[in-house]
């Protein structure tokens, strides 16, 4: 978020938001180019310029790849063997919702002629896309339920930043509305996950009045 934003709760958050925004913008450009290169002949694979409008297809493509990361993260977490029953139930529900996001984005991306990336199935691609989202931590470092939940919150937060950026850049009204509905759901996920590690701590569960990558 830049200084024009009305939603920065304080200067520090604004600075963080600005950084996240640049991470997302850079990621959209790099990620879209990489994904398009994977599904299109090289000569017709565009490389979006950072200063140029992102375009609906590139934006949806990046959001879709971010959602694939989220799905993989929930799958890996649930398969880790360290998640107890209450948290596992919540995560299984959220995994289902992330898959619904993937489906919705795929349908919309296909509708506007964009390339649909293959499902994310390997750790190397997962970690590469995580870095595009500005997340450097590897899931191989995670040892217990609290660490896994913190990791998931981190990705949910990054996803909210992706949608915040998407809603600014998208041109199609229906896509904007869908992105807003999904972004709000990701915010809910972050809140419920934080509640799992700090029950009853509402200031931790809902830390700021504006969700856009830092909450």
């Amino acid at each position: 978020m830049a200084d024009r934003d009305i939603a920065s709760p304080d200067a520090a958050a604004g600075a963080e938001g600005s950084t996240r925004r640049e991470v997302v913008r850079t990621g959209v450009a790099a990620g879209a180019a990489a994904a398009m290169a994977a599904v299109l002949p090289p000569l017709v694979s565009p490389t979006p310029a950072l200063a140029a409008p992102v375009g609906d297809a590139a934006m949806l493509l990046f959001a879709l790849r971010a959602e694939q990361v989220m799905v993989y993260a929930y799958e890996r977490t649930l398969a880790s063997g360290v998640i107890a029953a209450p948290a596992a139930g919540v995560m299984a529900q959220f995994l289902g919702q992330e898959r619904e996001h993937v489906d919705a984005l795929s349908v919309n991306l296909a509708r506007i002629g964009g390339p649909i990336p293959a499902p994310l199935r390997d750790l190397a691609t997962f970690e590469l896309t995580l870095r595009e989202l500005g997340i450097k931590r590897s899931p191989t470092e995670l040892r217990n339920e609290r660490q896994y939940i913190s990791f998931l919150v981190r990705i949910e937060t990054a996803l909210a930043a992706v949608y915040h950026f998407a809603i600014e850049e998208l041109a199609d009204d229906k896509l904007i509305q869908t992105a807003a509905e999904i972004m709000a759901n990701e915010g809910q996920h972050a809140t419920v996950l934080r509640e799992l590690t700090s029950p009853g701590n509402v200031s931790r569960a809902v830390p700021t009045a504006f969700v856009g990558g830092s909450a």
Binding site: A160, E169, I176, G187, T191, V192, G212
Partner: peptide
Amino acid sequence: AIPKLTPGWLRADMASILANEGQHISV
């Protein structure tokens, strides 16, 4: 409101608030 607003940054900021309302609803 969000799809109807003209500046993209304003749409995004309204979505930030919408997401916070979603968190309220969850709690």
